[in-house]
């Protein structure tokens, strides 16, 4: 490399760093620093009145993680997030497929339609769903007029899953749409030319080629579902305590900041491990 090339590369790198500075500062200030504060709090002491003292560092809060209550809450959160993810996938895949195979004009209109709900505050949309699922709501009324009697979904796990499905569906549709849209359709044609039926072609060609979209969408849906707070608070009942609400309660009613912080730390670490494992396996497959 000539010295001129070298200098050019150097200045390019410097420009890159300069451009990344605002984002970097933002991440340090509003992401890394808060995380470190959470980490520090998780080792702090809770006094006899519930105040948190940042001294006498200990592992007591981590000890409390392995109780039946925490395990049950984690398990419940896990399977509800898993059900939500699978349901999102089932609903989103055909739609994304349809979307990706339309003419550009139709596709743009449909994409706007997917985005429109985001123009309304999420909380208000969840309250609208609360009304829909209530014993006075349209679903219950329809069931009543058909002679099945009052039908309340509100305050059940089903209501929470439906609410999360609704809230996070877009996060599944968009990555799937991108993956399907940029797929090489000639490969599907080739499969059909080789006498694969529609289903086989889908299973052997389309599905593997859109796997990246499925995984990205699943992570985008699973992660917020697992720590979801607003939806279970509003649509859930006495039997749907989820991890997000449980953590929030430690910082409010229960006044146990160290324990809430320890729960958050473990949640973050678990998610990180899952994402890293996923990236590793993906990289090794390529």
């Amino acid at each position: 490399m000539t010295s001129l090339d070298h200098a050019a590369a150097h200045s390019q790198a410097r420009k890159g760093r300069l451009l990344a500075t605002p984002a970097g500062l933002y991440i340090v200030l509003f992401f890394i620093v808060p995380l470190l504060i959470i980490l520090a709090y998780s080792f702090a002491t809770r006094t006899a009145t519930g105040r948190t003292e940042l001294s006498g560092w200990n592992l007591e809060s981590y000890d409390k993680l392995f109780t039946g209550l925490v395990m049950r809450t984690v398990w419940r959160s896990f399977w509800m997030a898993a059900v939500t993810t699978v349901m999102c996938l089932i609903v989103a895949y055909p739609f994304a497929y349809y979307l990706a195979t339309r003419a550009a004009k139709v596709r743009n209109v449909l994409l706007v339609l997917v985005m429109i709900p985001f123009w309304t505050n999420g909380l208000i949309r969840i309250f609208a769903i609360r009304f829909m699922l209530g014993s006075d709501g349209p679903i219950s009324q329809a069931s009543e007029s058909l002679g099945f009697g009052e039908f309340r979904i509100l305050f059940t796990p089903t209501a929470v899953v439906l609410g999360m499905l609704y809230s996070f569906l877009t996060f599944m549709i968009l990555p799937l749409y991108v993956a399907i849209e940029r797929m090489d359709w000639k490969l599907v044609e080739a499969a059909r030319d080789l006498y694969a039926d529609g289903f086989t072609a889908f299973r052997k060609v389309t599905l593997p080629l859109t796997k990246s979209g499925i995984i990205a969408g699943s992570i985008l849906v699973f992660v917020p579902s697992f720590g979801s707070y607003v939806v279970p608070e509003i649509l859930g009942g006495a039997k749907t305590l989820l991890l997000g609400s449980y953590i929030a309660r430690q910082f409010g009613q229960a006044r146990n900041f160290p324990f809430g912080a320890a729960l958050s730390v473990v949640l973050i670490v678990a998610m990180l491990i899952a994402v890293v494992i996923n990236q590793r396996t993906e990289a090794s497959e390529l």
């Binding site: 809770r46 009145t49 519930g50 209550l69 006495a238 009613q253 229960a254």
Partner: peptide, 15 residues
């Protein structure tokens, strides 16, 4: 002293 115990037992009862 009972206050914290009540808060913890209540959390547990609700789980």
């Amino acid at each position: 002293e009972l206050q914290l115990l009540m808060q913890d037992l209540f959390s547990e009862a609700k789980g």
